[in-house]
Computed example of a mutant assay.
Amino acid sequence: MTSLPDHYETVRERDDYEPIEGAVGPVPAAERRRFVAVDDEGVLTRTDERSTLVATGVGMTGPPHLGTVGQFLTAVALQEAGLDVQFVIADLEPYHSGASLDRVRALAERYRAFALDLGFDPERGRLRTQREATDVMRTAQLLAPYYDPEAWTPADGSGERPPTDWERAVREAYEAADGERGPATAAVERSGPTSDAADIHSAVLHGVDFLHPLYAGDYERLVLQFGVDERHLARMARRFRDAAPVEGGVAGLYTRMLPGFDGTPKMAKSIPGSGVSLAMAPAEIRERIAGDPGGDPATSPVFQAMCLASRYDAERLERLERACETGGEEWARARDEYAEFVVGLAERWRATAD
């Protein structure tokens, strides 16, 4: 089977992660459907003992998709729960890979405006690009001697374990796409220079984006919040921390993934037809969302998107889950309402270009 629930269960058992029940501290029940695992049970219930920062962010390979929206809204929900949140817009990564600096700057500013529009409060956290954070760049230079490329390889040998059925299906979907690029990636087309040095700079900076608040002494604990498919980032941060003169705890809090449309295992820009980009026309967004017939909520791309990329409360999501299972008119109405919400998001994204 390639279902995400099976994948989550395998990952939790294999990596000794915990389900989120009781693990996300002050985060209200209304927001807990976003999360599927934590690698340090109760980490956010200990905020009175040590100052804690939740760190997250997004890469920029084009306009946001529903998974990106989910990352923004999760950051907002964590802020509203009273947590300090750092949100990094990773603009230097595409530049290091050959994207035009001017295009990267323009897209990064649109991402910043969109995050603010969705409710991120810069007075209660830090919303930044990589390019503007010169203090983090300085730390990256100071910690570079401690960087080991092997930090990206799990020290516990989990990278050598066979992939789950879902991971295998994702890999096959990427291979079938054969590197296709659609309009969603055209905004940061890679046509400029790059080098091995740029790759190393990018990797060091990626790690220091996480570790700088600990190195600077601003916080004593870091909680990395990403989709569960990026759980390797927490391992990398711990290994980099252990090698460098950095003290403090590092934990991982992981959100659900979004299954793709038309039977694809994952919503991804490089898997054609799998997702919803905010660059799509309203009619195309409505058509794609209307194509979800309901059934098993765990494999429904629309219901899973409702859990991650919406502000529905817990009671509403319970009703939507039942509607998805039943299908029929109630699910069609719920699906149409969500489509209008996403169309509205797309309009808000387009407004950032003005």
Rank of each mutant, 00 (worst) to 15 (best):
V104P: 07
V104L: 04
R105T: 01
R105M: 00
R105N: 01
R105I: 04
L107N: 04
L107W: 02
A108I: 04
E109Y: 04
R110E: 10
R112T: 00
A115G: 06
L116F: 07
L116C: 05
D117K: 11
G119Y: 00
D121L: 06
P122S: 02
E123T: 15
R124N: 09
R124F: 12
G125L: 01
L127M: 13
R128K: 12
R128L: 13
R128H: 13
Q130C: 02
Q130G: 00
E132N: 15
E132T: 08
E132K: 15
A133T: 06
T134D: 06
D135C: 12
D135E: 14
V136Q: 03
V136E: 01
M137W: 09
M137K: 04
M137T: 04
R138A: 14
R138M: 15
T139G: 11
T139L: 14
A140T: 14
A140C: 07
A140S: 06
Q141S: 10
Q141T: 05
Q141D: 03
Q141A: 09
L142P: 00
L143A: 03
P145L: 00
Y147I: 04
Y147C: 04
P149D: 02
E150P: 09
E150G: 07
D156W: 15
D156T: 15
D156F: 15
G157K: 15
G157C: 15
G159M: 05
E160D: 11
E160L: 11
E160F: 08
P163D: 02
P163A: 06
T164K: 06
W166A: 10
E167I: 14
R168E: 14
A169V: 12
V170P: 01
R171Y: 09
R171D: 10
R171E: 11
E172K: 13
E172H: 12
E172Q: 12
E175V: 08
A176F: 03
A177E: 10
A177K: 05
D178Q: 13
E180R: 15
E180A: 13
E180S: 15
R181W: 05
P183F: 11
A184N: 06
T185C: 11
A186Q: 14
A187W: 09
A187T: 03
A187Y: 05
R190S: 07
R190Y: 09
R190I: 00
G192A: 00
G192N: 00
P193C: 01
A203D: 01
L205I: 08
H206M: 07
H206W: 01
G207S: 08
G207V: 03
G207C: 03
V208G: 00
V208K: 00
D209P: 01
F210G: 02
H212Q: 11
P213N: 07
L214Q: 02
L214D: 09
L214F: 11
Y215S: 11
Y215A: 10
G217Y: 12
G217L: 12
D218K: 12
Y219N: 14
R221A: 08
L222D: 03
V223G: 13
V223W: 07
L224M: 13
Q225A: 06
Q225F: 08
Q225L: 11
D229P: 01
H232V: 01
H232P: 08
L233K: 07
L233R: 07
M236I: 10
R238V: 00
